[in-house]
Design a protein around this nucleic acid. Structure first.
Lengths: 347, 347
DNA sequence: CTGTTAGCGCGTTCAA
DNA sequence: TTGAACGCGCTAACAG
C-alpha cells in the first residue's frame, strides 16, 4: 500500500525538455492559458504525465506573490463569541503577514440593514476579499451581490445569506445545531413532560431563527410530552435575559427546561440562581465563553452546542485565499461542525 | 480596531540596506546562526523592528525546499476507523506532492510488540519523520526513543505512548472521551438504575483502557444507581462482539445500557436486534463508520463519541512538517477534539 | 502560436 | 566576522 513510491520531483524545466518546448509553453498548458496548438498541448500533457510532474506550491506562490487585502465585518458590541472570532483572526496575524495578506477587522452595527449595506458598499475597490457576519435582508443581499459583481471574493461568516451570490459560507448548519439542542434536552429529560422556555437573541438573525426552527422540529416530532413556550428575545444581553428568565420562572411552574439560542448565558444563570432553580431546570445553550464554561462546570447548563471560532477563522482565511487566487478549496477541511460540549469534553 | 494598517512588505534586502549590512548577515541574525558581532546583531534587529519585516513564507520554503519522507504506521486489518485515517492521508496526496513530501503508509501488526518494534527500527535512516499508532509497551517505547535519538521526528497517532520521547501526540484525550460517554449514558438514562455492559477491543491498547477508566470514573461518581459489568473483550470484531453481547443480554436481565469502547458496532447492533432489545438498551460507542452511522440513524445507538480522522491526518502532516523544518506548531489548531455525534449533528 | 528573459524573496555556498 | 553571487521552481512581460 505504499503511497508515493513514484515521488518524482520533476520540474517545469524537465517537462519542457521532455516535450521539446519552452518553459512558457508548458506554463500556458498547465495554467490553461490560451495560445497553444492542440498538438503541442498533447505533447506537453504527455510529458507531464510521463514525468509525473506536480508544480511546487512554494515556487508558484513566490512567483505570483501579489499582496492582497481582506476585510472582516463583525458585529460591534460585547458579544463574546464574536470577540473570540476576532481574537482568533488576530492570532493568525503571523500567518497572514507571511503571505502578504492584510486583514482589516471592521466592527459595525450588523443589526441595521442600512448601516451594514453602506459599510459593505464602502469596501468596493479597497479589498480583494471580504468575510461578513450578515443579516439576512434584501438590502444586504443586494450589497453582497454588488461586491461580487465588482470582482470581490465574498464569504458569509457564522450567519449565512444563502440567496446572495456569496462564494462560500463559513459556519455551521444552524438547523442541525437547533435540532441537536432539542435532542439533548429531550433525552436528558428522559421522558419527563412539561414546558420548555426558549430565550433567543433576535429573530432577525438567520442563525438564531434556524436554531429555533430545528429545535422546535425535534421537540414536536420526538418529545410530545414537552411543549414550547413562546420564545422571548433578549438580544443576547445578560441583563435582559435575566429579567426574561425570572418572569418565565414565575409564570410557568411546570417549566422543566430552558433553551438559549444565543449568548447571554450569564443572565440565565443568575435568574436561575436567584430562584434557587439552578440544577433543577435543565439548560442547554450555545457557544463556549467564560460564562457558559463556568455554568457548564457548575452544572447549571447540561450541555452546550458550539462551533469552533478558531476553525472558522482559519477556514475563512484559507477559503478567501483560495478564492482570490482561483484555486480549489477542500470541502472536507472547511466544513464547520456542530459540536456538543459536556462538562467532560470541555476543551 | 484595524488589524494591520502597518502591513510593510519589507524584504530582506530592505532590511540589509537599512542596517547597512549584507543579505547574508541579516539572514544569520534572523535564523540565529553564529558569527555575527553583537553590535551588528543590534543594528540588524533594529532595522527589522523599524521596517516591521516578516519573511515571506513561500520564498523561504522555496529556497529551503528539501524533499522529505514520512512514514505512517497503521494497524493492519479491517478496522474501519484506521482505514478512514489512511484514506484521509491519501486524500492529501496533492498537498504532500506540492511540498515534495513523500508519505509511505505501512500497515503492520500493531498488537504484537516485537513486530511493531522491528518495523519501527526498520524506519531508521529511510525517513525524516514518522507517525505511529502504537501499543503502549516498553519495547515500543524504546523503539520510538531510538528513532528520536537517530534524529527522526516521531509523533504518536490515535493512541499515545506518553512515556516515550515522541515529539507530539496526534489524537484525543481518551479519558475525557470515556467520561463523555459515561455522562451521556448516565444522563440519557435519566436516573434509572441498572447494570451497564461494557464491550472493549483490547485492554492492551492505551486508548481503549483510558476510555474505560474515564467511563468508570463518571459512572461511579455521578451515577450511583448504575453498576458496571466486567468488560468483555471482542477485539473490535463484529462477530465476537455479537456473541459477547448476546451472552450479556441473556445473563443480565437488568441490563439498561451498553458501552462500546471501540469498533465492531455492527456486532452489537446485530445481537440487540436478535434479542429484540434494539432501542430498549441504551447504546453509546465510538467513531463514525458506515455501520455506526446506520445504527445511530436507526436509533440503536443514542450517541457516538468521535474524533475527526480528517483533522488527525492533516494535523499529523502539519506537525511532522513543522518538526522536520524546525518551525513552531500552533497548539490550538492541532488539538483534536472529543466530539459528540447525535443523529441530529451527523456530518 | 512560441520562446527568451528577468525577476519573485530567501538560503547557502564560497571567498574575503 | 562579513559579503557577493548563485540557485530554488515558477510566472509574466516582451519579443519574435
Amino acid at each position: 500500500m505504499n503511497s508515493q513510491d513514484l515521488q518524482s520531483n520533476a520540474t517545469l524545466k524537465d517537462v519542457a525538455a521532455a516535450a521539446g518546448v519552452s518553459l512558457a509553453t508548458v506554463d500556458r498548458v498547465i495554467n490553461g492559458r490560451p495560445g497553444v496548438s492542440d498538438k503541442t498541448t498533447r505533447k506537453v500533457n504527455d510529458a507531464i504525465e510521463r514525468l509525473n510532474f506536480h508544480p511546487l506550491a512554494a515556487a508558484a506562490e513566490l512567483a505570483r506573490s501579489r499582496p492582497c487585502r481582506f476585510a472582516v465585518l463583525l458585529p460591534r458590541g460585547d458579544n463574546r463569541f464574536m470577540a473570540d472570532i476576532a481574537d482568533n483572526i488576530r492570532a493568525q496575524a503571523a500567518w497572514f503577514r507571511a503571505r502578504r495578506i492584510a486583514v482589516e477587522i471592521i466592527e459595525t452595527n450588523v443589526f441595521d440593514a442600512d448601516t451594514l449595506a453602506a459599510e459593505l458598499a464602502a469596501l468596493t475597490g479597497r479589498f480583494e476579499g471580504a468575510a461578513v457576519v450578515a443579516l439576512d435582508h434584501p438590502r444586504i443581499r443586494a450589497a453582497i451581490d454588488d461586491l461580487v459583481e465588482s470582482g470581490m471574493a465574498v464569504v458569509t461568516l457564522v450567519s449565512d445569506v444563502p440567496s446572495s451570490r456569496r462564494a462560500h459560507y463559513v459556519g455551521i448548519d444552524n438547523i442541525a445545531a437547533g435540532r441537536t439542542a432539542g435532542s439533548l434536552i429531550g433525552r436528558f429529560l428522559g421522558g419527563r413532560s412539561g414546558r420548555v422556555g426558549v430565550v433567543t437573541g433576535s429573530a432577525a438573525l438567520r442563525d438564531h431563527a434556524e436554531r429555533l426552527f430545528g429545535f422546535g422540529q425535534v421537540i414536536a416530532e420526538e418529545h410530545p410530552g414537552l411543549s414550547l413556550l413562546p420564545p422571548v428575545e433578549g438580544r443576547d444581553d445578560p441583563q435582559q435575559n435575566r429579567a426574561l428568565v425570572a418572569r418565565l420562572l414565575a409564570d410557568a411552574p411546570d417549566l422543566v427546561a430552558l433553551y438559549n439560542t444565543g449568548e447571554g448565558a450569564a443572565g440565565i444563570g443568575a435568574a436561575l440562581a436567584d430562584a434557587g432553580a439552578a440544577r433543577r431546570i435543565l439548560c442547554v445553550g450555545h457557544e463556549l465563553t467564560p460564562d457558559s464554561r463556568r455554568l457548564l462546570l457548575d452544572g447549571t447548563f447540561a450541555a452546550l452546542v458550539v462551533q469552533d471560532p478558531g476553525h472558522e477563522a482559519r477556514s475563512m482565511a484559507r477559503v478567501l485565499r483560495a478564492l482570490v487566487s482561483g484555486r480549489p478549496i477542500l470541502p472536507a477541511q472547511e466544513q464547520i461542525r456542530v459540536e456538543v460540549i459536556l462538562r467532560d469534553n470541555l476543551p
